[in-house]
Design a protein around this nucleic acid. Structure first.
Lengths: 153, 153
DNA sequence: TCACAATATTTGAGCATTCAAGCATCAGGA
DNA sequence: TCCTGATGCTTGAATGCTCAAATATTGTGA
């Protein structure tokens, strides 16, 4: 496809895209830094701890975790290895499928999550949730879920 | 601050936050992959090329670039070094301030940008711009710019 | 039953980003 | 003029993510 065949972005489209893209990156970066600074974990690690804590038996298959969080298998594998080294997670072979692995939250992992959560939630509120009106929240949610659906399906 | 003192997220707030956060990450990741695959550059590199191409004389101070794109100085420095190695950018000492550096687009950098742009714009359209109605676009823009203002000020 | 493709996950290399520290230059006051 | 702190940028170490390749197990059709 040549340049001429691509409909360029209008000024409005470009301004919207740049604002959205920049704010996403800044919010994500700020959350990451807060978690690393105060709890020694990345936002990815935090999300995995949350996902496990919400799972039946605080245990989940690697693939299910990856699907739920929309992580690549490799990202999940690297992250869980780190977290196992930190003592937050244990891995064991899946009984029903020898190829699979189950990740399980350890008591220490649960404690770590519980200590990290308040500061993280406060930051999510400060940067995002408490900045937007309920009406705006509904708009963002609707649009985000629509985009997500089309990307994931 | 203890757990009890942090107002937890309601289900609605949490759903909104998770959808926004996930979709931002997926869109950013998809754009990055498209650029790496088709043009051998990251989204950060692309943004720097665009910023330079829009600058007076296709030249800009490192710090101004970093401010404009909301990059950390160190991120900008590493990125520009790589791009200089690739022959897309030249760096020279700033004449008015011996501490400063000016980054300038090379002809090869401009060509690289022009070749990369159509595919990137197409992807931005496919994943974001063309998926949302004009009304939704205005909503996203307004909210994003509001959040940005409060983060950057 | 056997071969072979599909699936689940891991691994290693390479690049990007962050933080902390370092270097050079500039600006302002004694 | 000199000293000192601030500024602009770079550097190196540590970590995380992506891709491609590897490993192990499972399912399937002949």
């Amino acid at each position: 496809m040549t340049v001429a065949e691509v409909p360029w972005l209008t000024d409005e489209e470009q301004a919207t895209w740049r604002a959205f893209s920049t704010v996403s990156r800044l919010v994500e970066g700020a959350l990451d830094r807060q978690l690393v600074r105060d709890s020694g974990m990345s936002h990815a690690h935090y999300s995995i701890l949350v996902a496990l804590s919400e799972s039946e038996g605080e245990t989940a298959r690697m693939g299910d975790l990856a699907d739920f969080l929309q992580f690549s298998p490799s990202r999940m594998s690297h992250a869980v290895r780190r977290m196992e080294e930190a003592g937050w997670i244990e891995r064991r072979r899946c009984s029903s499928d020898g190829r699979g692995q189950e990740a399980m939250l350890t008591p220490r992992g649960r404690e770590t999550l519980e200590r990290a959560a308040p500061g993280h939630v406060r930051e999510v509120r400060r940067l995002f949730v408490d900045q937007i009106e309920p009406e705006e929240r509904d708009q963002i949610r609707r649009i985000s879920e629509m985009l997500l659906t089309r990307m994931v399906e």
